[in-house]
Amino acid sequence: MDPDTLTRRIVKPLVFLLCLLPLAWVAAGILQWPGADLGANPVEKVQDTLGIWGLRFLLLTLAVTPVRELLGWPRLLAFRRMLGLFAFTCIALHFLWYLFVDQAFDWRQLLVDIAKRPYVTVGFAALALLVPLAWTSTNRAMRRMGRRWQKLHRLVYPAVVLGCVHFWWQVKADVREPLMYAAIAAALLGWRLHRHWRRRAAAPRRSGPAPGPGRERDAGQDQEPARRSAPSRRLVQQPPAQ
């Protein structure tokens, strides 16, 4: 089996199942399966578990491009969309759990919370930013949107910042854990900023965002090597890194 088929047929389904574990644990806890212990405050436990895994998947999604470039693992790109959609799923469920279980369908309280409670406001804003990204995650949308797809999907950067702030603003005094997540997010975003500056420095004749040598190299690096099979479909499926 060649490495691409191995990735697509074996590794990707395995990673999918692995990513499913936190959600499966939550489901098992709700269904009261033995061994899945949600503790004394199960509503809060489910809420927190969905939220923290949403943030973790978001950071994993953002780690794909740096890791594949730094370690030279181009095939990592094959996992990015899946990780992103897991992040969205957890965060959407986190929100729905809050609305339907924690607040017990209280729409009015939800609106008050979004308007009045900054941590709810930023959390909701992060989710709102992720909705169009999930919506346009299909091959068709990528094909149709072309370059605009990449631009749109940069919304994940503010979303992850808001996610970290959302976490930070909820703890009472112990900011160590949110600090750790914020530091990882800062490193992942900082790497991109650094790369951006480096490329601008390497291409001094361009001042605007128009495609220059730097951008072309960017696109070229992020695409699958040309020797791959099914060229057109795969190229569309794996657009340039963000």
């Binding site: 405050n41 509503v43 924690d102 309280q109 919370d113 409670r117 941590y119 909820q170």
Partner: peptide, 19 residues
């Protein structure tokens, strides 16, 4: 300042909607 004190969740109240 960050959350409402109007209601509370009774631990172990036996229902999901135990606010």
């Amino acid at each position: 300042p960050r959350w409402s004190q109007k209601s509370e969740r009774r631990i172990g109240a036996g229902s999901l909607f135990s606010r």
